[in-house]
Design a protein around this nucleic acid. Structure first.
Length: 562
RNA sequence: GUCUUUGUAGCUCAGUUGGAUAGAGCGUCCGCCUCCUAAGCGGAAGGCCAGCGGUUCGAAUCCGCUCAAGGACACCA
């Protein structure tokens, strides 16, 4: 529950502000408030562990040169009893702070103590958050966009949990509305085609083989008994069979992908509970609707939109938009989520402001809804783009993908980049079980550590009890770099949670693996002096713990051997 | 046309919210196993941060315009 980086940053800030107050009292600096300044982690190790730009940002208001301000502050900074052993003025006026060896020792001890709890913070204070993701249409199998959305949403939820939120993972089942109608007509055509020639397939129907397969399954159970049934009854029966089967398939495929939902929320339940009508009533009472051409419209233009939207079609059936407003009413007003995050494909971006506006219109706070827009995936094989339209039926499905590449690789790759990046998924690379593939690089680090510990253990070395271990012996550059990176995990979790970017953790893990491999190459654990050996064993164990914690969060296996 | 995302090494991408000499992986070239896993490590080459202006101590990052690519603009979801 403790973040070493944030703690150190706060201490730096306090030290600088105390020095500033003293300098003001002594007349060395003018009696102005200190402007906001940053405490950064420099990329360059020679710039110390924490860099402060206070002197640069205050140069103008103080009408002084940055170096002079830095000097005045530097002379009054008291490092006694702090986490730092040294401060210095550098470059145009930065104040750089160097951590004491105690900082690194404490980090290793903290990890060994907190074990799989290391990385957790209370940043979000138990906030009740829903993450709704994938929510693929139950009219067919999932595609690669769902694969990305799944890995992203699931890991985002994990990151929020690790940052202290109470998170619900939810799948919105679109089991009502137009696409179900289309689904029914497609199934009906396939069913009839089993028995008759010259049955036309609907022009806008779902052409996937899965539809044909469901129709065949239905025929195996019911035979031709529905040939003579009334069309509506026939379609209802087909949907009553195929829809639950499809939903079960979605659930199964997602479980295979290691995604487990807390709630499967059905769109149809919004009609059954009357919530859609209730929300339409609220909008009407607020005067936010009007009638035109037999349809009920929502005055979106009153709430910042460019044009109005249909809520109820002239045929009396509410639109998806109406149901979505009701759905979000349910999320906030009925179930009391403090924050809701929806992971959507970027092709839905136009819907974001409309929905938020409508939430405001019915008295909710649209700013509590955050939508993570994810750019769609472009699949590439042999350097050629692969089309993935559901309607062509030639789509690569999530299931196809997972048969072709390991789940570890899929989850890793789909979480390697920011949601908003235009993603090019190289199938050939993901399939490769070689060092080109970064997931193996990370897993190998874990396996390597396990192997070291196993060897030490077999030879009678202590690998689990580090009482009295002198961790200050860890002072090689590669050791310090590794420990300082270990220290960043809680900070990275917080950043990933705040920025809705779980890919930060994947990248952090790759960097961590690299630092371990470097440490491994330059520092031998075995065959060195006993105290140093014990300290390095402790560092190995701590590193193993952090790699394992990250991979657990991403739901990627951490192998003991490879 | 309007809105939106993106443009950084040959390729795929980072860049800690405006900081110091712009980084990593892959690919290319050159090295490193008598030794805890070489699925590893080190080094070299590779850049007008799409372009032009602006804001200030300081810009890949912020604000305009231009160019290029993806996406959205339904009584679909």
């Amino acid at each position: 529950m403790h973040d070493p980086i944030s703690t150190a940053k706060q201490q730096v800030r306090k030290l600088v502000l105390a020095a500033f107050d003293e300098a003001k009292l002594e007349g060395a600096l003018p009696d102005f408030p200190m402007p906001d300044f940053a405490v950064d982690l420099p990329a360059e190790t020679s710039h110390g562990d924490f860099a402060v730009n206070a002197a640069l940002v205050s140069a103008k208001p103080f009408s002084m040169s940055p170096r002079d301000i830095a000097q005045a502050l530097f002379e009054r900074i008291k490092l006694a009893d702090s986490l730092f052993s040294k401060a210095e003025i550098a470059g145009p006026g930065f104040l750089n702070f160097f951590t004491d060896s105690r900082f690194c020792s404490d980090v290793v001890l903290q990890i060994l103590r907190e074990k799989d709890g290391y990385g957790r913070t209370d940043t979000l204070h138990g906030e009740k958050i829903m993450v709704e993701f994938v929510s693929a249409n139950p009219t067919g199998p999932m595609h690669l966009g769902n694969a990305r959305g799944g890995a992203l949403g699931d890991c985002l939820a994990s990151v929020l949990e690790t940052a202290g939120a109470r998170v619900t993972r939810e799948f919105y089942v679109n089991d009502a509305g137009n696409q179900i109608e289309k689904f029914a007509c497609s199934l009906e055509a396939r069913y009839l085609q089993l028995y008759k020639d010259d049955i036309p397939f609907p022009e806008d129907g779902y052409q996937g083989e899965d539809i044909t397969r469901r129709a065949e399954e239905f025929a195996e159970i019911n035979g031709d008994s529905y040939l003579s049934a009334a069309p509506q009854a026939r379609r209802d029966a087909l949907v009553a069979y195929a829809l639950p089967a499809n939903i079960e398939q979605l659930r199964h495929d997602l479980e295979t992908y290691r995604i487990h939902y807390d709630v499967w929320f059905r769109e149809s339940s919004l009609y059954e509970s009357g919530l859609v009508n209730k929300v339409l009533g609220i909008l009407k009472d607020k005067g936010a609707t009007y009638e035109n051409d037999g349809a009920i419209w929502y005055k979106a233009t009153d709430y910042g939109a460019e044009k109005d939207e249909v809520l109820v079609r002239s045929n009396g059936i509410p639109t998806y938009f109406a149901a979505d407003i009701a759905y979000h009413y349910d999320k906030f007003a009925v179930r009391g989520f403090e924050r809701v995050i929806n992971v959507w494909g970027a092709d839905h971006h136009g819907h974001v402001s409309r929905l938020k506006g409508a939430m405001n219109a019915i008295g909710l706070d649209g700013s509590k809804l955050d939508v993570v827009l994810m750019q769609l995936v472009r699949l590439v094989r042999d350097g050629e783009p692969v089309r993935m339209s559901k309607r062509t039926g030639k789509a690569i499905t999530l299931t196809d993908l997972l048969e072709e590449i390991p789940i570890d690789a899929a989850r890793f790759f789909f979480n390697l980049r920011e949601p908003k990046s235009h993603f090019e998924f190289d199938l050939d690379l993901a399939v490769k079980e070689s060092s080109d593939n970064p997931v193996y690089y990370v897993q190998y680090a874990h396996a390597r550590i396990c192997s070291i510990l196993k060897n030490l253990d077999a030879q009678g070395y202590e690998t689990d009890n580090f009482d009295g271990c002198d961790l200050s012996l860890l002072c090689e550059p590669d050791e310090l770099a590794l420990i300082k990176h270990l220290a960043k995990l809680p900070f990275e979790i917080t950043a990933a949670a705040c920025e809705y970017d779980p890919a930060r953790i994947t990248r952090y893990t790759v960097e961590l693996a690299g630092m371990f491999h470097r440490f491994y190459t330059s520092c031998r654990v075995k065959d060195c002096e006993a105290d140093l050996c014990l300290a390095r064993t402790a560092l190995c164990r701590a590193t193993k713990q952090v790699v394992a914690n990250c991979l657990a969060l991403l739901k990627i296996n951490a192998p003991e051997s490879m």
